[in-house]
Design a protein around this nucleic acid. Structure first.
Lengths: 173, 173
DNA sequence: CACAAATACTTAGGCACCTAATGAGATCCA
DNA sequence: TGGATCTCATTAGGTGCCTAAGTATTTGTG
């Protein structure tokens, strides 16, 4: 047995960061790299957990977000505006709406204002689904952060917002 | 114009959380829900940014992580163990290795110990690629968290770890 | 008015991730 | 020894996400 105390799954360690940095003779701060790596790992883990969570209700993260956004806007919105507010491409919205339409949770109608456009509308079935999902969904969301006090959550929100700003460093240029 | 100061993309607001909770007559804490929602949004955004980042080097997040993990273990590891340490399914590893093998960055060899098994090895080309990628990769990772002081990063690491523990609340039962 | 350019949505093709099913080989144990 | 069973890796099929290309329609402009 090699003595690797933490080799199980996903969460990178400070030692790993140090090893990687020194292997290439770089001067990066291992702690900073660790924070970034942990955040990426957490994001991936959370994404998968989210799919499991929404999967209980016959939905996915993307589908739920689309439904919720639709309800938040009076149950009617164009694919383009949905894409903008969800932060995904229009092609992705097409796919999400396809799936939701198949299950009767939303419907497409030709736009009355723009001949090229559609409007996606939330059906009664879709609104029902949101209503069914809500209690458990919000309970689990809350439980997820129950390990933090109110002050800690406030701090976390602030730090997270600043890191999110920094995400641009990955894509810049 | 409805006055929605923050309707642009992705980042949920406290108002949205409040509205959703009250719409269903629930009693969840809006701030807690906001933290959870922001974290999910951040995770999604980071995931996409990561793909862009690794895409520069002809890699993806999954492929990079596999390569890095391989190098960290002497350049040789079975698909099962890769799956375990990356936190993904074996089927996913099969797909990642397929892609990396096509580009000559890794190779498969039959295991000498277990007739069913393979061993994935890091090729010279694969090691070169990691070496090429390293300076920019670590620089950008570091830049991502440059908005936080060392103390803040320590705090963030602690809070993040506790939230990650809470992720199980999404998948429990 | 007519034609070019911008825009709305869809389609096609790619990657990463998943679960479930398959085939091959290892292991256990009566 | 010989089967039941577990495990390894792959394949098949599903979802979500992307970009790029294609079609339809609107808008802008000479």
């Amino acid at each position: 047995m090699t003595q690797h105390p933490e080799a199980h799954h996903g969460a990178p360690t400070l030692d790993q960061a140090r090893r990687q940095i020194s292997r290439y003779g770089l001067t990066a701060d291992p702690q900073a790299v660790l924070v970034a790596a942990r955040l990426m790992a957490a994001g991936a883990r959370l994404g998968q957990a989210g799919e499991v969570h929404f999967g209980r209700f016959g939905l996915s993260t993307g589908r739920y977000r689309l439904l919720a956004d639709l309800e938040d806007h009076g149950g009617e919105k164009s694919p383009s505006r949905l894409a903008a507010s969800l932060g995904v491409s229009r092609a992705t919205v097409t796919g999400l709406v396809d799936g939701l339409e198949r299950e009767g949770l939303v419907a497409r109608r030709p736009s009355t204002e723009d001949g090229r456009g559609n409007v996606v509308i939330l059906t009664a079935r879709g609104a029902d689904r949101l209503r069914e999902v809500a209690p458990e969904h919000f309970a689990r969301m809350q439980a997820m952060v129950a390990g933090l006090s109110v002050e800690e959550r406030t701090t976390f929100l602030d730090l997270l917002a600043r890191v999110v700003t920094g995400i641009d460093a990955l894509t810049a240029d």
